[in-house]
Structure formats: C-alpha cells, structure tokens
C-alpha cells in the first residue's frame, strides 16, 4: 500500500508511518555492488588508484570500476592525495554536486591527516579532509597499495549493507 501525496511518494513520518525496510535493504545491496567513483586524482595516490582500476587488480570485480568524470554521476569521492587550502573550496563544491547517497574515502596519509606535509609553520595544507567533508573510510599508506584500496572498498560495502562480502583477514596482533 503506497500513499501518494501531492508530490509523489511521501515518506514523512506523520503522513506515512511505514518504513520500506526490505526495499531499503535491496537498494543498499544494489548500491554497495555498483559504487561509481569519481575520476578525481589529486596527487601520488591517484596513480595507485588508477593501478587498482586496471587489469591486474581489477576494481570492476566489485562493480566499482565505472569512474565518472563528473560528480553528478558519482557515488563515491576518493580523495587521493594532499588537499591544499587552494583546493579545499573546489573539493567541497565537488562533494556538494554529488547526488545522495554519497560516500567519501580518504586515501593515503595526506587525505587522512596531512601526512608528511605537516610541520611547524606549514601554511598550505589541510590537515585531514575530514575537516571539510564527512569521511566514511580511511585507507592509510603513503601511498596505499592497491590491495589496501580494495580493502577500503570492502569496508565501504560493509558500511552500506551491514555485512562483509568476504571473510576478513585474520588478526595477527
């Protein structure tokens, strides 16, 4: 039973108390298996991001190899490199142009915390992209290996659907 309001399906609580629990789950599964990242290379990590998308590591196995050159078609922003103060407004604009639901993956130490470019008297680096936009997954490394980025994608899937596609690695320490 779907209640149609004046402007289509209305999901506001007072009007329509039913939650599409199952539908949401199916949608989440679809989203998790077709994450379209944005072609957004910032620095060194962008090369490893490209390597991940290429034949050896084959990001397409996880349905995430469709790199979009425009933010309006993308679900995921991979912040692959150092964010400078000059780049920050551009990055926020790009994030705002992405349609919801959207995710952000901070790739590499620079995007996580400014990485090696934080020192006393630094004047140009944003110390972590999470100061600008909400970040879902952090992938450390300088630069992270492609395997690490793949693990980041699996983590993101886990976050979206609530379960993991493969069994995780054994914890050794």
């Amino acid at each position: 039973m779907v209640c149609l309001g004046e402007r289509g399906v209305c999901l506001e609580k007072e009007v329509f108390p039913v939650k599409f629990a199952v539908v949401e789950k199916v949608l989440d599964l679809a989203r998790a298996n077709s994450i379209w990242p944005m072609t957004f290379g910032l620095a060194c990590c962008a090369i490893e991001m490209m390597s991940t998308a290429m034949s050896r590591f084959d990001l397409d196995r996880f349905g995430a190899g469709v790199f979009r050159a425009t933010p309006r078609q993308a679900d995921l922003m991979i912040v692959s490199g150092t964010v400078t103060k000059k780049m920050a407004p551009v990055l926020v604009t790009l994030y705002e142009q992405m349609p919801s639901p959207k995710w952000v993956l901070a790739m590499g130490n620079c995007a996580i915390s400014g990485g090696p470019f934080v020192f006393e008297g630094q004047y140009n680096v944003i110390e972590g992209v999470d100061l600008l936009v909400p970040v879902d997954v952090y992938v450390p490394g300088c630069p992270p290996r492609p395997e690490a980025l793949l693990e980041g994608f699996l983590k993101l899937e886990e976050k979206i659907t609530g379960k993991r596609r493969f069994p995780g690695p054994e914890s050794r320490w």
Binding site: L42, A43, C44, G81, T82, T84, K86, M87, V90, P116, F117, F119, E120, G121, Q122, Y123, N124, V125
Partner: peptide, 26 residues
C-alpha cells in the same frame, strides 16, 4: 597553479639533508 603546493622548499629549510630525502619521491 598551486592547487597542490606542498611547501617542499619550505620543508627543506626545516629538516636535515637526510630527512628531506623522501620528499623528492613525492
């Protein structure tokens, strides 16, 4: 320019010769 200005030259003045070595790769 300057969207990826990472202050390498400023950093060089702040660290020893060896400490600056990894910067060259970046």
């Amino acid at each position: 320019l300057g969207y990826l200005h990472r202050m390498h030259e400023k950093m060089a003045e702040n660290r020893s010769y060896l400490q600056f070595l990894p910067n060259t790769g970046r």
